[in-house]
Amino acid sequence: MSAKPLAPAIDGWHTMDMHQPHLIGTRCIDCGTYFFPKQSSYCRNPACDSTDFEEVELSRTGTIWSYTNACYKPPEPFVAADPFEPYAIAAVQLEQEQMVVLGQVVAGVGVEDLKVGMPMELVLETLYEDEEDTKVTWKWKPRSASGAK
């Protein structure tokens, strides 16, 4: 790790608690539907025309809906390390919110370590570094310690 200060890759999408981070979404005051990314001006539930939302921290654990990896460098605005390091990606189902959230899987965990239904937790890890900061984002990590190498 470099000595650069940590900054979120996208402002306000997750807490910066490096031990127990949460994604930050919103919840419709009227119908209780959650939104991530945050939705605060209109509710997408067709049975609801609310304009009142509260910001909420989403569950930081869930189970794998599916998973894959990226073997090739994505185009901009992705900022790739040189040389490019392939990474796994997981779609994780949050039980309370009943939604699926995509994210990279932490470094060192590959698709061979994953399975549909596996318990995962949210962590923060470096996405890339620029001149001023180390930009961190949310990533998924297997909850069983044995999943990580």
Binding site: T68, A70, P75, E76, I89
Partner: peptide
């Protein structure tokens, strides 16, 4: 794209 999710990601999932 910023977070590294391309079209093949969805097909892979």
């Amino acid at each position: 794209f910023y977070l590294g999710v391309t079209n093949p990601t969805y097909f892979g999932l």
